[in-house]
């Protein structure tokens, strides 16, 4: 794998405790280094690393391209994973409401505009990072606090039933790819 980075390497955090580092290349060719403990928080990346057979010896020579995530989101994700790499493992996801408190550091990290938050949660979903997913979901869910249905329609951009029906009709009226 020989992808030449077009921009300087972003060193998010020096890792002294664990010498194993991996390189990740975002969709817009930003290069990030991330420690082994941190990258394990992403099930997708860790599966990829395992399947590619990357080891401490060859990891830095084989950057991992992630085509679905841009540099801005990857920077946030790497920061998050480095911050939480030694956290206790989360229990398996269950269908109960978990009363966790969003730490202030993470609330600051996720204080971004709605479009960025949308892109970040898509990236988090793709990379399968459970804790970051929960934190993003908490931030988005908190937008609904004490709001009326009319306010929720505006906050979440939810179309009315009439708008949904019109959209469905226009989709079914429009010719398909072959027509």
């Amino acid at each position: 794998m020989s992808v030449e980075p077009e921009v300087p390497i972003v060193q998010v955090e020096e890792v002294r405790e664990n010498p194993v580092l991996y390189k990740i290349i975002s969709s817009d060719n930003h290069v990030f280094t991330i420690s082994e403990h941190a990258v394990k928080l992403s099930k997708t990346l860790w599966d990829l690393i395992t399947n590619l057979g990357l080891t401490a010896e060859n990891a830095l020579d084989n950057p991992i391209p992630v085509e679905n995530v841009n540099g801005k989101n990857m920077e946030t994700i790497v920061q998050f994973c480095e911050r939480h790499k030694y956290d206790e493992e989360e229990p398996e996801y269950t269908n109960y409401i978990r009363e966790f408190v969003l730490p202030e550091w993470d609330r600051q990290l996720l204080s971004i505009d709605n479009e960025e938050l949308f892109q970040l949660i898509l990236a988090t979903n793709y990379l399968d990072i459970q804790k970051l997913m929960d934190y993003c979901c908490r931030v988005i869910g908190d937008m609904a606090k004490d709001k009326t249905p009319e306010e929720l329609r505006i906050i979440y951009g939810i179309p009315t039933d009439a708008e949904d029906d019109a959209l469905e009709r226009s989709a079914s009226d429009s010719p398909g790819p072959s027509g």
Binding site: N114, I121, M133, Y156, G157
Partner: peptide
Amino acid sequence: PFPLLRLPDNP
């Protein structure tokens, strides 16, 4: 607005 209904099912 945050485009809630454009998200995948899991989130």
